[in-house]
Design a protein around this nucleic acid. Structure first.
Length: 477
RNA sequence: GCUCGUGUGGUGUAGUUCGGUCCAUCAUGUCGCCCUCUCGAGGCGACGACCCGGGUUCAAAUCCCGGCACGAGCACCA
């Protein structure tokens, strides 16, 4: 055995699996989907669904569908600019364009077709109970009186729902028949379509009867041939509801995988509608304001798509509710950006020191310790800037040892005194750091450079930052 | 309340399907050391966990039972 199959004797000890877990029920060409509500651009939270679904699609040679679930014009009205923004964000984050893009509001004929089929086959009914009344039936496990209506009656009620002179919002909904005695109250005769009269930003007032998520999503998943649904476990009951619908129609429900809730301490308390309002009020400068948890903000600050990808892949697909610090994402980002981040010196709380003694008038340094990112050419005049708290007998990094009075004691490193960063010449600028709902502004002196706007640099002893026109935006340490 | 789900170091994960090879993986974090490139880069090292209680078994993170804790759904939101 040792000779024939030595690998079997090999202790396969603690090899941590990397990457995504194997997909259950794999098929030749799996179809995945990511279905955001375009009531605003994408946020950090959305990136999980996008990364996971896209990653499986990419690795398994499948397809990714980007689907806009925009059938609510009342509670979460669609934002017309968001469609375009989300498409760009999707491509940026995944590194490829979704193979198919579906906009639910443009698929209403289909949803109506299946709604009518539902009624015609007695799989559902038009319910005229108020939501309060139905809540009682649900609680007491009684059938609501609308449940045993004739098909012809259902048809005329459906017409009334669609007629502006007929039912008004709240007067009637279409429900899917399940079983009112089901142990799980959430599943009892769930609502599939309701009336909305607000204009939809894309299709105006063309429709009155709009599907709810559980119906729209279920029908569309079937129509598109989605094979695997990967989503949050808060949608577990949604799956159970939709399975009743699939059962009625004789369809096969896709394989479903769930993840748990993710809390990011730094991003607590943001909602799409809240951000929209605050931007309107001017509290935030826009969707890419560096304090916001949007993808636009993270991108602007210098978080790379690859970092978001490896971050979510590492977190994986457990159903645990987790709480992750942003620093974990940052560490992924560091390893991606460091090789391409030139070093630069930025002195905050600067104090000017006059140099005395012998020293070169010019030094030339590598912009990066190991990568070839060019040179930093520094002219030394007779004074330099240090951070006030660094004052003392120190080594000016890559330059010389000085005493606390500025006497140049040695060009070579002569002892193990503290190494500090410094600037000669340079120019004043501002470093912006998001701090909760505030922006911390620290003034300082930045080393002169010819780097272009948008470059991510490593400020020595401070961390990474992005160069903007007239300022620096702090990324992370 | 009803229903569903989850519990491995500070945090996130691997291992749980088929009990031993797990005195439990990897990463992050914290601390320390090294470095004429930085206390926030890089290198090295240390620290630190199987929710609790029973049971089955020669053997349990892994199986069974009972607790407890946390989260979600019960919207004419997604």
């Amino acid at each position: 055995m040792e000779e024939q199959a030595p690998e079997l004797l090999e202790k396969k000890k603690h090899v941590k699996k990397t990457g995504l877990p194997d997909l259950p029920n794999p098929v030749d060409k799996p179809v995945f989907r990511f279905a955001p509500n375009p009531n605003g651009p994408l946020s950090f939270g959305h990136s999980r669904g996008l990364v996971i679904n896209a990653e499986y699609a990419k690795q398994l040679n499948g397809e990714l569908i980007l689907r806009f679930d925009d059938t609510d014009t009342t509670v979460k009205p669609p934002m017309i600019e968001a469609y375009e923004m989300i498409m760009h964000e999707q491509e940026w984050l995944c590194g490829f364009k979704a193979q198919r893009v579906i906009i639910a509001s443009e698929r209403m004929e289909e949803y109506h077709k299946y709604a009518q089929k539902l009624l015609a086959n007695g799989y559902g009914y038009v319910c005229q109970c108020s939501s309060e009344d139905f809540r009682e039936y649900r609680k007491s496990k009684e059938n609501c009186p609308c449940r045993n209506q004739e098909n012809s009656e259902a048809e005329s009620l459906w017409k009334m729902m669609n007629d502006e002179n007929g039912f008004q919002p709240g007067d009637a909904v279409v429900r899917v028949k399940t079983d009112m005695t089901l142990p799980n109250p959430a599943l009892r005769d769930w609502p599939a379509l309701r009336i909305q009269t607000n204009a939809h930003p894309r299709v105006g007032n063309k429709w009155r009867v709009w599907p709810l998520l559980d119906f729209q999503s279920a029908v569309e998943d079937h129509l598109q041939g989605v094979t695997h649904i990967i989503r949050g476990k808060d949608l577990m009951d949604s799956t159970r509801k939709q399975k009743w619908l699939y059962e009625h129609f004789g369809w096969n429900y896709p394989e479903t995988i769930y993840w748990g809730r993710v809390k990011v301490h730094e991003f607590g308390g943001f909602s799409t509608s809240g951000m929209k309002e605050d931007i309107k009020q001017g509290t935030f400068t826009g969707w890419d304001d560096i304090r916001l948890p949007t993808l636009g903000s993270l991108k602007r600050r210098g978080i790379r798509a690859e970092a978001l990808q490896s971050f979510w892949i590492e977190i994986g697909l457990t159903q645990k509710d987790i709480s992750v610090p942003l620093t974990t994402l940052f560490s992924h980002n560091t390893s991606i950006i460091d090789p391409s981040s030139p070093r630069l010196s930025f002195v905050r709380d600067a104090i000017e020191i006059e140099l005395r003694g012998e020293y070169p008038a010019h030094i030339s340094l590598d912009a990066h310790p190991s990568e070839n990112l060019g040179k930093r050419e520094i002219d030394i005049d007779n004074h330099i800037y240090l951070e006030k708290s660094d004052l003392g007998n120190v080594r000016l990094k890559d330059f010389c040892d000085i005493s606390k009075d500025g006497v140049v004691e040695s060009i070579e490193r002569s002892d193990n005194r503290t190494i500090v960063h410094w600037v000669s010449g340079g120019h004043k600028t501002m470093l912006l750091t998001p701090e909760g709902k505030e922006i911390l502004k620290s003034e300082g002196i930045l080393e002169n450079h010819q780097l272009s706007i948008g470059t991510i640099v490593q400020l020595e002893r401070i961390g990474y930052a992005k160069l903007e026109e007239d300022k620096l935006v702090f990324l992370h340490a």
